[in-house]
Design a protein around this nucleic acid. Structure first.
Length: 424
RNA sequence: GGAGAAGUGGCCGAGAGGCUGAAGGCGCUCGCCUGCUAAGCGAGUGAAGGAGCGAAUACUCCUUCCGAGGGUUCGAAUCCCUCCUUCUCCGCCA
């Protein structure tokens, strides 16, 4: 959520920033400004009358204590009470509209986010080189088939398309990745958290997934709960409505959870294998950060992501996402894309967003130091390991001519009997 | 799932329609005092919004906030309703 004070004081800058997202900001901004003016107008009126009521109420109390007659004043206040009630009703309506409008406005892109849309992301750098194969590489599904490691058919029978069973040594590989990731992050100051995956609407609105991405979310209507698409949601909500001690910032967490996504609108896209499924597991990092430190924190998080892909020996490239392709909450976002030999291109495996004060304002997460008042902080989130996609990348990049899968050295300590090869 | 109890400031805890943004205590901050420390004494100590003034997260004033949201009343922490959370007992259970 944007700061209404900022919109009020500098609407043209806000308008220009929103245009970079390709938003039709004009109408929404004018509506916001109008609602805001109207809110303050009514507020002043209500407060004047409430002030009057408070003064006279004290007089009434004094009269009653002195056993004097107060009926005239009580009668007068009856009218004032009615006026207050009416004004309050109008105020509620205006504030509700303002809130609704404000919730739909996305974050302002950072000036350093590239211009354009999804085709205009800017390549920051490459690491590693795609492997030269002396044989025709198999994709992850063909590799898995030989050893019965991924069961799409039965997954579909049980739960429908885009659900799978992960089996055998791939399960060990998944948990090796989890262990590897959690340990690395813990050393860097991220506190491990296993989060709730069912959350209230508040958490969805607070993180900016509602109302914009409602169609992507599995909702349990009967319980008023939502299955999270990422542990970013419960991690961000962890400090909802809190005022943190400035000295504790940044507060860093690494979460582990299953993630659920409807993938609405992705019909026919990435239908083969486990690249795009309705349920997957993910290790995610999150940081509550002082406003003036979030750019640096963003780069820190990206460096962790790069370190992990390097440890795993997966060739990748880093891109900065263009303003027009940012999610609602993000002011700036980096994606890391790993090389998939059978697709002969780089595909997204992690992403890292600086949401500045957008989520924190919605979630009412603030900080306070020894002097001065409370202020809204910044939040950042990033994938540590998207397990399904990382497993795909490992399988495809580490396959042997015999159809086996070598375990990356970094993961072997976490595999049963320090397993070096899957499928033997 | 059934029955009951409770939610007040950083914490404990009073208040039961008006004099309560809230007694008392603890904690914390700043002074005073004392070889040091402790004790003692004094003062202070929340948030949000708005108006004025402005460089301001500074200052002045107003409004609101006693789990959340509605209602009754001239007036609600206090009465009524709904929801949320916590605790106890019973049932069920990984």
């Amino acid at each position: 959520m944007l700061d209404m004070k900022l919109i009020r004081s500098d609407p043209e800058s806000v308008r220009d920033a929103l245009r970079r997202r390709g938003e039709h900001a004009e109408a929404a901004l004018d509506t916001l400004l109008e609602l805001d003016r109207s809110r303050r107008e009514i507020l002043v009126e209500v407060e004047e009358r409430r002030s009057l009521r408070n003064t006279v109420s004290e007089e009434i109390a004094r009269l009653k204590r002195d056993k004097a007659d107060a009926t005239a004043k009580i009668e007068a206040m009856r009218t004032v009470g009615e006026e207050i009630k009416n004004l309050e009703e109008r105020l509620r309506e205006v504030e509700a509209s303002l809130e609704t409008e404000l919730l739909q406005v996305p974050n302002l892109p950072d000036p350093s986010a590239p211009d354009g849309d999804e085709d205009n992301s800017v390549l920051l750098h490459h690491w590693g080189a795609p492997r030269e194969f002396t044989f025709v590489p198999l994709d992850h599904l063909d590799l898995a088939a030989t050893h019965d490691l991924i069961d799409m058919e039965r997954g579909a029978r049980t739960s429908g398309s885009r659900f799978t069973y992960l089996k055998g040594d791939l399960v060990f590989l998944q948990f090796a990745l989890v262990q590897f990731a959690l340990r690395k992050l813990a050393v860097k100051g991220f506190r491990p958290v296993v989060v709730p995956v069912l959350v209230r609407d508040e958490a969805m609105y607070g993180t900016g997934f509602f109302p914009t991405d409602m169609q992507q979310v599995y909702r349990l209507e009967g319980d008023g709960l939502n299955l999270v698409g990422t542990s970013e949601v419960p991690l961000a909500a962890l400090h909802m409505d809190e005022i943190l001690d400035e000295a504790d910032l940044p507060i860093r967490y690494v979460g582990y959870s299953s993630c659920f996504r409807r993938e609405a609108g992705a019909a026919g896209k990435d239908t083969r294998g486990i690249f795009r499924v309705h349920q997957f597991d993910k290790v995610e990092m999150f940081s509550f950060c002082a406003p003036n430190g979030s750019a640096q924190e963003h780069d820190f998080m990206r460096s962790i992501q790069e370190e992990i892909l390097q440890d795993l020996g997966l060739p990748y490239r880093t891109v900065s996402i263009a303003a027009g392709d940012l999610g609602a909450s993000a002011a700036k976002k980096y994606d890391l894309e790993a090389w998939l030999p059978t697709q002969e291109r780089y595909r997204e495996v992690t992403s890292c967003s600086n949401c500045t004060d957008y989520q924190a304002r919605r979630l009412k997460v603030r900080a306070k130091g020894d002097k001065g008042g409370a202020y809204v902080i910044h939040t950042l989130n990033g994938t540590v390991v998207a397990l399904g996609r990382t497993i795909i990348a490992i399988m495809e990049n580490y396959q042997t001519e015999e159809g086996l899968i070598e375990v990356p050295k970094a993961l072997r300590p976490f595999m049963p009997s320090d397993m070096e090869m899957i499928g033997r």
